[in-house]
Computed example of a mutant assay.
Amino acid sequence: MTERADATGWRGRSLAGVVAPVADPQTYRNVLYLFLAFPLGLGYYFLLVFGLVLGVALAVVVVGLLVLLGVVVGSRFLASFERSLANRLLGTEIADPDDVDRDASGVVETAKAYLRAGSTWGGLGFVALKFPVGVLSFVLLVSLLGTAIELLLLPVYPGGAFNVEVAGWVVARSFETTTERLLAVPAGAVLGVVAVNVLNAFADANASIASSLLGSNADACE
């Protein structure tokens, strides 16, 4: 993974260093990656659950085993997409895995080669993790960035631009007068700065996970 231009880590940083991520284009690529995480994770979750349930239900016949094999091997295509997404949006440089025996011939030997490759199981693990990571991404985006934007826009949209609600608290309803809405703007600005730093840190964690599970240095399964 390359050195990334985001500003994460609070200790020993100046105020300018804390605010800098707001103007950093990498921040908004990080936010886009996190924004996409929930719908992608949800889609992966349904594909995996459907495939695994169907495969187990039909495991008594050959078809079920083929379905399970299809889920495992098919996850490599999802992992490849995720690898490209991380490289493009998170600034990683994850190489395509090279641990599959390319000399394998025939359907059975090719299937065995994929099942022996550590990258197959690393990719499957990443795809399975995408749903909980996506849920956490959504929570952070709404509770931090969504609330910050709502506060910033209250003078223009008194009823709330997005009707953001966090743990039962409807943001717009807490600022009823013009004065309160104007005071909400600096509060939103401060929260916005906090939000981009937290989201950058979480994006860094995602980049580390992607590099660990989607990289080419996965150990081959014994």
Rank of each mutant, 00 (worst) to 15 (best):
F50L: 15
P186R: 04
S208V: 14
A95V: 03
L78K: 10
T177N: 04
Y45W: 13
V61H: 09
V49E: 08
R76I: 03
A187K: 09
N197G: 00
T2E: 13
L47F: 14
G188D: 12
V139K: 02
L191A: 08
L145K: 07
F162R: 05
F131T: 03
L47C: 08
D99W: 09
I94P: 13
L214A: 05
A104S: 10
V127Y: 03
L182C: 01
G122M: 07
L154P: 02
W169L: 14
L58V: 03
V185A: 11
S216M: 00
V73K: 06
D24N: 15
K130M: 13
A113E: 02
L140D: 03
F46D: 02
V185H: 07
A207P: 08
P97N: 02
L115G: 08
T92K: 04
G215L: 12
C221L: 15
L124W: 01
R76Q: 11
A23G: 02
D6K: 05
G64Q: 10
T8F: 12
L145T: 01
P158S: 09
S143H: 01
S105P: 00
A220S: 15
A79Y: 02
G74R: 12
V135T: 13
L54D: 12
A172K: 10
A20Y: 01
P186A: 03
G12D: 07
L154W: 09
L32R: 13
A187L: 15
A184F: 05
D101R: 04
T177G: 06
T2M: 09
S84E: 06
V142C: 04
P25W: 11
V166D: 10
F77I: 10
V139G: 01
V73A: 05
G51R: 12
S75C: 06
V60P: 00
E109N: 13
Y45M: 15
P25D: 10
L136Y: 11
S119Q: 06
V164A: 05
S14D: 12
V22E: 04
V156Q: 09
D103V: 01
R116N: 06
Y157E: 14
V72K: 02
G146M: 10
F175R: 07
A95I: 03
A57L: 14
V67M: 04
N217W: 10
A203N: 11
A117L: 11
N206W: 15
V18M: 14
G168S: 12
K130I: 00
A37E: 04
S208D: 12
N30K: 02
T120Q: 05
G17I: 11
D98C: 00
F131V: 09
L48W: 03
D98Y: 01
A184N: 09
G159E: 11
L214Q: 10
P158I: 04
V53A: 14
R181L: 06
R116F: 10
V171M: 11
R76L: 08
D98E: 14
V166M: 11
G74S: 06
V18F: 07
L136S: 08
A187Q: 10
A189L: 15
A37Y: 05
L32P: 09
N206H: 15
F202W: 15
D96T: 14
G74L: 03
G12K: 03
G134E: 04
L40R: 11
L52I: 15
G106Q: 06
A86Y: 12
L36Q: 09
V198Y: 03
G215C: 07
P155M: 07
A104M: 05
D204G: 05
V127W: 04
F202G: 00
L69M: 13
L36C: 13
